[in-house]
Design a protein around this nucleic acid. Structure first.
Lengths: 203, 203
DNA sequence: GTCTATATTTGGATAGAC
DNA sequence: GTCTATCCAAATATAGAC
């Protein structure tokens, strides 16, 4: 039998988290306050503590929601078998996912809230995202960790510059495909070097 | 004749800014408070207002000091004439400059202080840094803005990942030389493509 | 220039009635 | 579960004496 009370509670929890996102997108991630949040959902501030133990607990719920959204949307990017094209599609997805919600990016990847870190359960969700990226690369024959680190650096670098220096524009987004071409040629060339075939390419 | 009063004032201004750096490095950039700062220099909080109009004015002085430090230290990186080696040396300098003081990096490049932006005079100093980078690239024959944007993305991406995910280590720092090799080969190859010589390389 | 005292705002969080 | 009332802490900034 349906538990109507539990359903109601879940709905209110979700409503509070949604309102929190609305606030931080409007005012900045650090500007979230329990009073403002309560007002936005039609409560008094103390009532929020019936749903969340603290403000950090709300940040944690937001983080978890963001991580789930990433996993859900990432799953829609299906590989074609063309390594470079797949790399580009994956990078475009990542950068666009981050850029379209800078507050979420700040919460999940930049960690600027003093004293906040995600709970173990929530953090596990974000680790899963990195694992999937690693799996995609492995599918392309890229297996060394240095290449993975280089790729994440390029991805976050483009994202950061886009958000910081051209918000709303596409100055760095438009470089994603080119950047992935650069990265792909680099890692494939390096592999061939290791197999001692690079200098034989033109032979 | 020396103005001993002005000298004394300058010394106190510098002392306050230095103490502010000490605080933000210890507690985080956003945690700077006038009370703590005053205590560290042996004053009461209101006395600081004889030297700075507001907390933002202190941030501005810190920003300006950071920008001057960058310009001074950047000037010590002298080109050798070898484009790739110079690119690598410049990138190593940039990443190390940022990584060795994350609070400064956050103030100058990430802009996470709500409501703070540098004054026009201070901002001009940071623009000068970008101009010098552009000049260095021009000296290597790299003149298009897309390449400059790609380079800044790679540089800040490596820096961000290093600070966020391996503080105190060198997991991403150790990728700088390789990343610059990747970038350099990409931009030189692209140039050759534009000159329609790429497909003739093996002929 | 520095101090004491204080205004003012803002925030997270709790107690206890209903 | 929600409210009112309140606590407690921290912060920026100002007024005015010395």
């Amino acid at each position: 039998m349906r538990d109507r009370r539990a359903e109601r509670r879940e709905a209110t929890l979700a409503e509070i988290v949604d309102a929190a996102w609305t606030l931080v997108r409007r005012e900045g991630l650090a500007a979230l306050s329990m009073r403002d949040l309560a007002r936005l959902v039609g409560m008094q501030a103390p009532s929020l503590y019936s749903y969340f133990d603290s403000k950090h607990a709300i940040y944690d719920a937001m983080f978890a929601q963001g991580a789930r959204a990433y996993l859900d949307e990432e799953a829609l990017v299906v590989p074609t078998g063309d390594p470079l094209a797949d790399l580009q599609a994956g990078a475009r997805f990542f950068v666009e996912f981050c850029v379209k919600d800078p507050a979420r990016y700040q919460l999940m990847l930049q960690r600027t809230i003093p004293g906040f870190e995600p709970s173990p359960a929530t953090f596990a969700l974000s680790i899963e995202g990195l694992n999937r990226l690693e799996a995609r690369l492995t599918g392309m024959g890229i297996t060394d960790h240095r290449s993975l680190d280089l790729l994440t650096a390029v991805g976050t670098g483009i994202t950061d510059q886009q958000i910081s220096n051209d918000p709303g524009g596409d100055r760095w987004i438009s470089l994603v495909d080119e950047a992935m071409e650069m990265f792909f040629h680099h890692v494939t060339k390096t592999n061939k070097t290791k197999q001692h075939t690079r200098t034989k390419r033109c032979a």
